[in-house]
Amino acid sequence: MNRVVALRNWLAAWAAYLRAGDFLVLGAALMVCVLSALTLWQGGHPDKAIIRAGGRVFAEVNLNAPRIVEVPGPLGTTRIEVQPGRARVAADPGPRQYCVRQGWLNSAGAVAICAPNEVSLSLSGRNADYDSLNY
C-alpha cells in the first residue's frame, strides 16, 4: 500500500509541472499518433474482386454483397465465392487445388491462381499491400 501512495505522490509531483494548455498539446499529440496510425496502417481494404479466365477479365465484382460466380475454363467450372470484404475460390477442377487451399483473400492485392483451369481471382483496392507479384 505504501508503494501505491508513494507512486501516486511521485506522479502528482510531476503532474504539478503541467499547465492547462499542456494537456491540450498532449491530447493533440496523441490524436496525431492515433490518426496517423489509422490512416497509414489500414493496410488497404479491398473494394473489388477481379476474376480472370484465359487471360481476360471475366468479371469485376464489388465486395459489398455475398455472391457466387461460376467461371468456365478448359477443365470445367471454377466456383468463386464473394462475401463482404473477402473472396475465395470455393471449388476448382484443378488437380492440386492450390487456389482453393489458399482460403479467404481479404487484403487488397491478394491473388489466388488456378493455373490448370486458367482462372485467377485478385482483390484490388486503393492501397494494395503488394506493388506486384511474380511467379
Binding site: 509541472y17 499547465r19 492547462a20 494548455g21 499542456d22 491540450l24 498539446v25 499529440a29
Partner: peptide, 18 residues
Amino acid sequence: HLPKRWFGPVSQSVLAAF
C-alpha cells in the same frame, strides 16, 4: 510566445519534438 499561464515547457517540448 504562447501564453505562459497555460503553456509551459511541456508544450514547447512536445511541439519541438514533433
